[in-house]
Design a protein around this nucleic acid. Structure first.
Lengths: 206, 206
DNA sequence: AATTGTGAACCTCTTCACAGCT
DNA sequence: AGCTGTGAAGAGGTTCACAATT
């Protein structure tokens, strides 16, 4: 499959949300121009992004909202259920367990791991926190496909090593460092402080 | 000031963390090649990023770690204290209050606002949750410079309207939609679900 | 008349490659 | 000899502009 840029994929996620909202308002069709306006991009960008995957619109008329939503959902794999494991049940891990957006999109949190003796055995939202020392067994048993790393920076590389050795191929990393992983493993980084620092830069240099 | 790309600014944040860690290990100098290796970029990229701001290295020798860390900190404005207000004390807002990385970088959370009657008046980490209906008064009183929006999508645009009308020029938005703000206001988006969806796309299409 | 789909033009960011310092 | 700093080349992403379609 042809390489599609990260930006295109991220924008598809945005369009998907927009279409979801419009569908809830019982609107039936929309133009690339309107999607663009709502999502803060250009209409050519919307059409180009979609064109990588097919031709979904009707010239002169625009796109059918429900159809386009389903198409983008399928492209992104949001028509499936994904089993997600969270490693590190601290502030961030805890917040994610309750994050409505995840479940809504088919991301089911099936496993919580921590290495803190005081947390292991406790329950959060009907899920028992298990020991990270048995990570590989649990990841396989729960058939986890995506791992969220929410441990301190000092522990993150080890966590990455363990989960990739268990065959995990997709990682969402909240630890503020660059993880080294084997080829074929996809790591996405989420670092809330980095965006704040970009704001700090902006305020400092504007 | 010449426009610097977001990617460059984000990478400077990464280099900064790397230098901070190296400094803690009492290493004194480093080459662009070594920074690149740690942060997963090319050495030319590191040198180019730095070159937008000045010449900080010594040919043949590399960079002094402490000096470079201070220089980047100054570029990013991390040598100052920033007053941050969090709007929406739900799961995410709550997690941010405790997020160590923030305080470490000079981001001081000074204000918590919510519009839920059951939360107003409660204390979280020595901070009282105030009513969003008095947002403007509180933002001014606490001299807030950066606002974090951690409310549901349906409420986010109104929150953005209120805080920008109070003169806030920097917003970190956790709500999964594109906010419309007046010119001169910088909005950075943080959407944990979008990165998960990129992983979903990868797993679906690899 | 309106709006898509897309090649071509454009622009921006990244990498190359090497002269210039230390 | 080793490594930086940077102009030039290259790659990749975005926007333009218009033919094609409804």
């Amino acid at each position: 499959m042809k390489k599609i840029s990260d930006s295109t994929i991220n924008r598809l996620s945005k369009y998907f949300r927009t279409l979801e909202r419009l569908k809830a308002k019982h609107i039936e069709t929309i133009s690339s121009d309107e999607i663009a306006e709502i999502d803060g991009v250009t209409s050519a960008q919307v059409r180009k992004d979609l064109s990588f995957f097919g031709t979904f619109g009707k010239r002169g008329l625009g796109y059918n909202i429900e159809d386009l939503k389903n198409i983008i959902g399928k492209i992104l794999g949001l028509n499936k259920q994904w089993n997600v494991g969270i490693i590190g049940v601290g502030n961030i891990g805890m917040a994610l367990i309750d994050y409505a957006e995840f479940k809504k999109r088919g991301f089911q949190i099936k496993l919580l791991l921590d290495s803190d003796e005081n947390k292991i055995g406790k329950h959060v939202k009907n899920l028992e926190i298990k020991s990270f020392s048995e990570a590989i067994t649990h990841l396989k048993k729960e058939n986890i496909q995506i791992v969220v790393i929410a441990v301190p920076a000092s522990a993150a590389q080890n966590v990455a090593d363990v989960v990739t050795s268990a065959g995990i191929g997709a990682v969402l990393n909240f630890a503020p460092l660059n993880l080294k992983t084997p080829d074929g493993v996809m790591v996405k980084n989420e670092n809330m402080s980095i965006e704040l620092e970009a704001l700090s830069y902006f305020l400092t240099n504007k």
